[in-house]
Design a binder for these strands. Structure first.
Lengths: 195, 195
DNA sequence: ACTGCACATTGACCTAGGATAAGAACTAGC
DNA sequence: GCTAGTTCTTATCCTAGGTCAATGTGCAGT
């Protein structure tokens, strides 16, 4: 067919039925974003799920005190979306921004819901995406509730070793919910321990 | 039909088609739990969604340091489940416990998935539940990341004014991610301000 | 190669909330 | 109503991590 990550991802997750796949693909558009460019801003309605074909995205909010909080990174093969905004048709509370030049596939969520009504492969796929999403969110909550900065950092390294090399520390800190200064101290302390 | 909260909830969320409803109800069982009784323990597989007909549940985890963290309360008309455990067929990381004598309806999740394949009303209902769940989780993450103890407490009061009266403070504190002592201090400070 | 800017480190200080302990106030079971 | 276990408050002290400010370092654009 072609050697896009997207199609590989879909075939291995939905199945290899060509008709189904082509139906889906025909409803997806492709879009590129330059480094720094925004895919979505707080207050806008989110209309798509973005699949990252190449590059890296971050999703973050800005709280009342003006501070950024990174919710999620999305490197290759990840989806990013604000399902709350899409589903409930509400303005999003998040920003989505490209941290590298990024190629994405835009997937219309409502289309997805429609497709799942007629084809159970989609239904199951969508269910898997939703449950995976929930799993991640729950993991983050547990972490925020119970782990120290150092533990969270170690966990991050374990979970996303590749990201560590691509994401500036300032953003890692924001993801972990600490200041860059604190992260720097944590790293120093870890280096000392492992000497 | 009857005046259970459960059926009211279902008719207003799925529809009033009697055949569909009865099909669903026929697959649900009812179960009562005494105050303090556990519905699920860490390490067990969660097999159901519990709908609270009467009473109050809490869901919590115990971290490596032995500390409890309350994830969610479920009073009347709420669902409680560990979707991760159900869906991925993994041992749960949570406990579920009755804080009052509680009557629940047990809903088999896999049945639900099956039903959504044949009836779009179920599909849409399930989708709504999932998205609502995601919304709540996201809200909690934002809160944990950006709000102070006091802000979180005020938010809790605003969101669940009724729970405040039914849940011992010690559990509210655990939900907010602070110690009971801190909560006590926060309350004192608020009382001072509003004098 | 030079400049500028974004990122990272370090240090001094501060503060929200944790730990511990002890007493006060509820509540349930007899 | 009495007793015993919870739960709640208060006080003291402590620590992780935040804030602020200064200095370093790397790298993109000209």
């Amino acid at each position: 067919m072609n050697n896009l990550r997207f199609t590989t991802y879909l075939t291995s997750n939905i199945g290899t039925d060509k008709a189904v796949l082509e139906q889906l693909l025909s409803h997806c558009s492709i879009r590129e974003f330059k480094k720094g460019e925004f895919l979505l801003s707080q207050g806008e309605k989110c209309r798509y799920s973005f699949f990252v074909e190449r590059g890296l995205l971050r999703q973050f909010s800005i709280d009342d005190k003006g501070k950024e909080h990174i919710i999620q990174f999305a490197p290759e093969n990840w989806f990013m979306s604000d399902r709350e905004s899409v589903y409930f048709d509400r303005p999003s509370s998040y920003f989505m921004q490209a941290l590298e030049d990024t190629v994405t596939f835009l997937l219309d969520e409502n289309l997805f819901l429609e497709l799942s009504k007629s084809d159970t492969a989609f239904l199951e796929f969508n269910n898997r995406l939703l449950h995976n999403h929930i799993r991640h969110l729950q993991r983050r909550i547990t972490q925020l509730q119970s782990a120290t900065a150092e533990e969270r950092y170690l966990d991050f390294i374990r979970m996303y070793p590749d990201l560590l090399l691509r994401v500036p520390q300032i953003f890692v800190a924001s993801y972990l919910g600490i200041t860059p200064e604190s992260l720097s101290r944590v790293r120093k302390e870890l280096a000392r321990k492992n000497r």
